[in-house]
Design a protein around this nucleic acid. Structure first.
Lengths: 124, 124
DNA sequence: AAAAATAGATTACAGGTGTAATCTTAATTT
DNA sequence: AAATTAAGATTACACCTGTAATCTATTTTT
């Protein structure tokens, strides 16, 4: 799988928000959350292209970027990886850790129930 | 929080299995799963000491290592961090991603139900 | 047309990371 | 006692990362 650093992920995430997009649009989105210099973001875009995480088409002097991978695919792989490393691949211990330290809201619980419900329907 | 690289985490994880432990015990445990050179593991132990992730006491010429942090604390912080970055802090989308791609077993579901159950009892 | 701004490309540079090899010193073996 | 082994300390080194600054080639402005 493509390996992204945290900063690279954040840039790609800004693109996933809405694409295709130009560098300046991405820069604008990121400046809401970060203080990254324009040059920094362009460097990261370059690295993402090199890693085949996104492509671009030229539009005159500008590039118009599009992700090469779907967010859901990337986050799924990352999550599997993470849960494998920290919890031997089991998801409940993660959720349980959250529960014990009171990181779960009623909304989280409701959403989890729904996921379980859907899963069970699927099984039939 | 203490930041650990993946390799550092793996070494600390071998110590968490059973501690205090000597370098050679840790090396023995890791050679079950990895092909890391003894020197590599010692380097990582040194870095972990420097990061205050573990301490040691001298026993003659050897060091006897003990973790400075609890596994549950570390994994909780890492999980929060991860879920914040990838899922805006919500846990259900992660679980839902697993469900959709058939990464959940009946056992996972049962465990999740139990976590939810316990949480709800706790709320009363 | 000359100057300024702007897009992307190239270069920079310190600190982290994976992955050891070498050095130093003390213990063990022969 | 001399040689070997073994513990940890120090050094190595390429690649990754965060974080830009500078360079080059257009566009825009003036």
């Amino acid at each position: 799988m493509i390996e992204l650093s945290k900063a690279e992920f954040a840039v790609l995430d800004a693109l996933w928000l809405n694409y295709p997009a130009t560098a300046s649009q991405i820069i604008a989105r990121l400046s809401d959350d970060t203080h990254w210099h324009e040059k920094t973001i362009k460097t990261l875009l370059g690295r993402l292209v090199k890693k085949d995480a996104l492509t671009f088409e030229k539009d005159g002097r500008q590039y118009i970027y599009t992700p090469c991978i779907a967010r859901a695919d990337y986050t799924l792989k990352e999550s599997e990886n993470f849960i494998q490393r920290l919890f031997s691949g089991r998801i409940a211990p993660l959720v349980s850790g959250f529960a014990k330290s009171e990181r779960l809201s009623q909304q989280d619980i409701d959403e989890l129930k729904k996921v379980i419900d859907d899963w069970e329907k699927q099984q039939k």
